[in-house]
């Protein structure tokens, strides 16, 4: 009787969800078999059984590949959701989590710590990155938060300005550093999942799950925003406050991810775009599929980053930038053809 009431749209949504979940699970499992060490499928199976006599290969999978695959999935889904939220509340399909200065703030924090304390690794570095991001977020809200009219434009302008500001300070600090430090910062900024460990996975998991949950709860308000600030107000949405709340959520996700993985661009921009072709973002299915597609995508990007070069890592940001550029060029191409 439920089936009879389901429209074509409902069926499409359920199908899309089913495919996304399956693809995600498949990817999470399969990705574990890729890496520098030669491992077999048996090793992958064994890594799920927590035994004390685990073999070398099994432990490589469990200790190293599993955390990074999970982190990659979390990062991809988090960035995709953050991008979707931002694009929705700013009504700008080109909005990206990195547009607002969060990543620049993180780099600034990292370089500052290096310059002041000579610390170039470890927990302190990630903490400095997180604080830098939160500083950027705080400044953004301070500058553009109280605007009643044209809040979107203010936010975008302020975000870009902050981005440049932090970049300028970072460059200034790097000016006095030695080439080795400069190279290391560059690679840190380009992003990597190699530093993933079980002990620290709880943070991104917590933040992303919570933020996604809140976002799902507010999906009606998000959809209302799409028709314009005025329209949303008539539907009872407190537009200015809501926008700030969503900005905070997406900035939190971005801040945590940058602190742990460095800067990984384009995902927040691309994935919502792609999913929108197939599913209206107005539905729960649309939001969940965006999250799943983002995660799956990033899992494979991570596989590429550790498989493209022999016994070496390619920074994740390089791969997402390359894919992102191709994506946008082809968007442009298809638009021309449509017109």
């Amino acid at each position: 009787m439920v089936m009879n009431n389901m429209s074509a749209v409902d069926i499409r949504h359920s199908l899309a969800l089913l495919i996304s979940v399956s693809a995600a699970l498949f990817s999470l499992f399969t990705a574990l078999s890729f890496g520098a060490a030669e491992t077999s499928l048996q090793d992958v199976f064994n890594s799920f059984l927590l035994s004390n006599e685990a073999s070398f290969n099994t432990r490589i999978i469990y200790e190293l590949r599993m955390p990074r695959t999970l982190l990659a999935f979390l990062a991809g889904s988090g960035l995709a959701i953050a991008g979707l939220i931002l694009q929705t509340v700013t009504r700008n399909p080109l909005a990206d989590p990195y547009l607002f200065g969060i990543s620049s703030g993180a780099s600034f924090g990292v370089v500052l710590l290096m310059a002041l304390a000579g610390i170039s690794a470890g927990f302190m570095l990630s903490a400095a990155a997180l604080l830098g991001s939160l500083l950027a977020m705080g400044l953004l809200i301070l500058i553009a938060g109280r605007q009643q009219s044209a809040q979107v434009e203010s936010m975008l302008l302020a975000g870009v300005a902050l981005s440049f500001l932090f970049s300028a300070f970072t460059s200034l600090l790097l000016y006095w550093s030695d080439p080795q430090a400069v190279a290391a910062i560059l690679f840190w900024t380009l992003g990597s999942f190699a530093r993933a460990q079980w002990a620290t996975l709880w943070l991104p998991l917590l933040v992303i799950t919570l933020c996604t949950f809140v976002m799902l709860s507010f999906r009606r308000q998000l959809n209302a925003m799409l028709l314009g600030d005025e329209s949303a107000i008539t539907l009872g949405v407190r537009v200015q406050r809501f926008r700030i709340l969503m900005l905070v959520l997406s900035s939190l996700i971005t801040a945590v991810l940058v602190a742990m993985c460095g800067g990984i661009g384009f995902v927040g921009l691309m994935v919502p775009h792609i999913v929108r072709f197939f599913i209206s973002q107005g539905s729960i299915a649309g939001l969940l599929v965006t999250s799943l597609v983002g995660g799956t995508f990033m899992v494979w990007v991570d596989v590429l980053s550790r498989s493209l070069l022999k016994n070496q890592e390619l920074p994740v940001g390089v791969i997402t930038a390359a894919i992102g550029s191709v994506f946008f060029l082809s968007l442009l191409f298809f638009r021309k053809r449509k017109v």
């Binding site: 520098a36 490589i60 190279a183 690679f187 990597s192 190699a194 016994n311 070496q312 890592e313």
Partner: peptide
């Protein structure tokens, strides 16, 4: 100056 992971 290759960038590497622990697994490498």
């Amino acid at each position: 100056y290759p960038q590497i992971s622990i697994e490498n």
